[in-house]
Design a binder for these strands. Structure first.
Lengths: 195, 195
DNA sequence: ACCGTGATGTACCAAACGGTACAGCTACCA
DNA sequence: TGGTAGCTGTACCGTTTGGTACATCACGGT
């Protein structure tokens, strides 16, 4: 086994970054926290940015896997939305999501090591979710915009939940969206918007 | 005029932080960028965290003012939602919003200087928005959850917009939500969810 | 027995960091 | 005219940073 030592190290780095973030964390502090030396981190990852690139890649792979595992066992859009929220709002995922939003912030400031993240952070989700919604009966015209909205709802509610910890209130808002999403293809009771 | 010099300095700091972020920015770099010395920043703000606290306070005040300026000139929920999104998606606000999300990420990691931010980042909005929705005819039971959902939608779509720059696609998703939000008080065509 | 390869410890580097002591400067008020 | 309060530049402090040179260790193949 060649990459095992490096993989183990990367895993422990990821776990610790999920606990405390990385913005104010030096290579030395990180190394000490996971029981190695900063010399080892530089040996395996080359530089601080090199480490962060591998962390981002690992997180992307995990998210893709989690997304792929979201196969639908219901044809009801409301139930699908509920199941989706139940998965992502699992408290066990909170540390990973905190780290996700921290990386997101750095990506918005154009940090070079976030290049891959920036390109896939939205499209990696809207594609599969659009397909899923189409399979659930939404016309293609609606599936794309509903996917984009659903993604925004998920991330917006997660931001709320992580900041307030008010599980009940955020769950309630998620439930409202689950009820609303089922009405995407229903006719409106008012004429199309003026102007 | 007592606080003028400090206020001017703070203003220029805010502007520069909106351009490049603060996570990887030292007091010296910031000072040089805005044409002063790091000595001055320490004199006026005491420490790096002291500066960040004042930046956060200033941004909160601006956001409160912007929220208060959002008076509704329509009783149509859909139009209200459209107007809301049109305001916050103004490209001129993008730098301020990038900085907002960067502070948010640090708040999620429990940085002490974000204490005030953490307490108000959700509640400062859900309160007024709930009132606004109530005034627009939503029953209290629905207004609260609709406000929380609307806030999440706004922030989630903003994250998308800032990362992808795909104004048209994000506007389209926002329009879908504007159409859906008007149906909150409509009766459903299916019986209440089982279980 | 030998050697090469991956892994690791020690010890160091120049640069930058946050923060501060101290000596001035300007300007207004008595 | 003489302070006194706010502001600023210089020059420094000890510490930490990302990164590296070098010597060493464990060990599997030959």
């Amino acid at each position: 086994m060649s990459g095992t030592a490096k993989q183990t190290l990367l895993e422990r780095c990821l776990q610790h970054l999920q606990e405390v973030g990385f913005s104010d964390l030096s290579m030395r502090e990180l190394a000490a926290a996971i029981g190695t030396s900063h010399r080892m981190l530089h040996y395996h990852f080359g530089s601080r940015d090199g480490l962060l690139v591998e962390i981002v890649n690992l997180m992307e792979a995990r998210q893709r896997a989690a997304l792929a595992a979201l196969e639908a066992d219901t044809s009801d859009l409301t139930e699908l939305s509920r199941a989706f929220w139940k998965r992502v709002s699992d408290p066990a995922l909170a540390p990973a999501e905190r780290l996700f939003f921290e990386i997101y912030a750095h990506a918005l400031n154009g940090r070079p090591w976030t290049a891959g993240f920036r390109e896939s952070v939205v499209t990696a989700w809207t594609g599969p979710v659009t397909d899923m919604l189409t399979r659930h009966g939404l016309p293609p015209r609606q599936a794309g915009r509903a996917a984009r909205l659903s993604l925004a709802v998920g991330r917006g509610l997660l931001l709320d939940l992580l900041a307030t910890g008010d599980q009940a209130a955020v769950d309630d808002a998620a439930e409202l969206f689950a009820e609303l999403i089922a009405r995407v293809e229903e006719p409106r009771d008012t004429p199309p918007s003026p102007r």
